[in-house]
Structures are given as C-alpha cells and as structure tokens.
C-alpha cells in the first residue's frame, strides 16, 4: 500500500481487496465481544482535520481510530486557529510538530489532501475533498456490495444523480472498475462533467432503461440549490425523471440492492419507501464504514513504528 490514501487510484486491485478482507477480519474479531476495541494502534495519534462540517464521516473515523486504541484529536476548522486565517500549510506544520501519525482530512477544496501530503510525514487519509474524491466511502460501498451480493467482479452498478459535483461518484467509478464491477452513470446531461466520456463507465440519461440491468443502484444526493443554477428546472422534475420511487424499484432484478451515501433527501432523489425497504443498504453502509476505516487506518499506520 502507498503511504497515503488520497484517491481511489492509489489502490490497485490487491490493495483494495486487502482493505476489504481486513475489514471483514476486524468485524469478525469484534463480533460478539463485549469490549469492541483492538489494541493495534495504541500509542499512535490520529488527527481528524475537518474543514467542512461532516458529522457522520468525522464520527465514523473517530470511532474507527478509537476502536483501534489510537489517540484521537478532533481539529475542526470552526473555532480554531484556522478560522483566524491560518493557512493549510501552517496547520500541517503544527500537526507535524505535535507528532501526528495519521491525518484524516475533509476539505471543501479539491486536492487539499494532496497538498497536505507534501507537508506532513504521517499518513494522510482523504475523508472527502471538494468535488474530487472520497475514497473511504467507495471502499465501504464496495464492501457493502461484496457482503450483500457475494462478489464484485461483473456486478452491474448504476450511479444516479449529481455526478458533476460528487466526490462519491468519482471514487466509486475508479474503485469499482479496479475491482471488476461494471459502472453506469445516469444523470441529466447538465450534472455530468464534460470529459466524463474518458471515465471507465457507461453513461446514460434514461434511468428506466438501465434499472432492469442493474445489480446495484447507488443514488447520489442532489442539492436543491442546483436548480437555482439551472442544472435542472425544478426539484419536482428532477424527482420525476431521476428519482428512485417504488415503481422504479420494482423494475430492478430480484436480488438488486439500493445504496445511498447519505445524507438523503427523502422525496427528492429517493422515496421514503425505497430508503426503508429491504433492498436498501443505507444503514448497513454506515456500520460498514467504521470497519472499513479501521482497516484503512490499520493498514496505513499499523506497521512497525517508522
């Protein structure tokens, strides 16, 4: 494995499989235990550096690090020196001086984790950067698919929604391709990036045509504000053309699953009855997120002290 996890392309097939297998082992090791904690990262320090509000991702990483017995510091941009204008580099040097072994970073600017990796000696884990990537989300999605369907090779995954602004979509396209799945992107053309044709994915505009050929449907969050910038005419029209409701869900093959990285806009991209159905893996994804992030931290930081 590389020293940092900045984007899904940092993982080749062996690395990605190792992360998923390690997550499965960790889950097994903890199953039925009263104390859900492993001593693996005792004495190591993990900093959660969050420049963007993201309670669920931060908590997931925090829990993962704590279950590995690491010391965890939460460094939120709000109310810290960052809000007083400290630069990313100065923050990085501060963390470096404090001896952080791992830095988990969430940032609104694409590429911020790449910059950070130039300035710290510890491992950097990208917890979502701008509209670029969110590699641990893709790992937990892959883990969830493999767990539910028993395989990834040849699985047909349809990703629906605001691909243009989605770091989840970018990471998933790359990682799923690495792991042998077939990805189809479905969105209004305004929400697909120019250049999407170079991605290892099929592209379509018609959700109904793709659903019968999908083993997995992954719905992306669509922000209502997008309609103010004319990406689509109205929330209602978006929902009608690209939302997943019960009628559309019925068009899926019998064992197909429905995923969503959260937080959901119920009634917009996904109907409540779909989100709460047995096909939905949404709650499972959250649980798997902790196991997968434990695996990532373990594999990046768990080796002999460097």
């Amino acid at each position: 494995m590389k020293r940092h996890l900045l984007e899904a392309a940092d993982l080749d097939r062996d690395d990605a499989t190792l992360v998923l297998d390690t997550a499965a082992q960790i889950e097994q090791a903890l199953a039925g235990r009263e104390v859900k904690k492993l001593p693996t990262l005792r004495g190591r320090t993990v900093v959660n550096l969050f420049y963007e509000d993201s309670t669920r991702t931060r908590i997931s990483f925090e829990l993962a690090a704590k279950r590995l017995s690491a010391d965890v510091i939460n460094f939120s941009a709000k109310g810290s020196s960052v809000s007083k204008g400290e630069s990313l580099k100065d923050t990085a040097l501060t963390l470096e001086a404090m001896g952080a072994d791992g830095v988990v970073v969430r940032h609104s600017a694409s590429g911020a984790p790449h910059r950070l990796a130039n300035w710290v000696r510890g491992s950097v884990v990208n917890a979502g950067d701008g509209t670029h990537e969110h590699p641990t989300q893709a790992l937990l999605d892959a883990y969830t698919i493999r767990h539910r369907l028993g395989r990834l090779d040849g699985v047909r995954v349809t990703i629906v929604g605001d691909v243009l602004h989605s770091r989840v979509a970018r990471s998933n396209v790359v990682l799923l391709q690495t792991l042998g799945a077939e990805v189809t992107l479905v969105a209004p053309p305004t929400l697909l990036p120019v250049g999407v044709g170079s991605w290892p994915a099929e592209v379509g505009y018609d959700l109904d045509a793709v659903l019968p050929k999908s083993d997995v449907v992954m719905m992306l969050r669509v922000q209502g504000e997008r309609m103010n910038a004319s990406f689509f005419p109205s929330a209602r029209e978006y929902s009608r053309r690209y939302g997943l409701d019960a009628r559309r869900m019925a068009a899926l093959p019998d064992d197909a699953i429905v995923m969503h990285p959260g937080p959901m806009n119920r009634g917009m991209e996904i109907a409540a009855e779909v989100a709460d159905s047995v096909r939905s893996t949404i709650v499972e994804q959250v649980a798997n997120g902790v196991s997968v992030r434990m695996a990532v931290l373990y594999l990046l930081l768990g080796g002999a002290a460097q």
Partner: peptide, 12 residues
C-alpha cells in the same frame, strides 16, 4: 474544462 478537470474535481 476537459477530461482532466472531470477527474480532478476542479471546476472547468
């Protein structure tokens, strides 16, 4: 704006 901006998540 092109293939690389699409991948890098930088506005084109």
């Amino acid at each position: 704006e092109g293939d690389r901006s699409a991948r890098l998540g930088l506005t084109g």
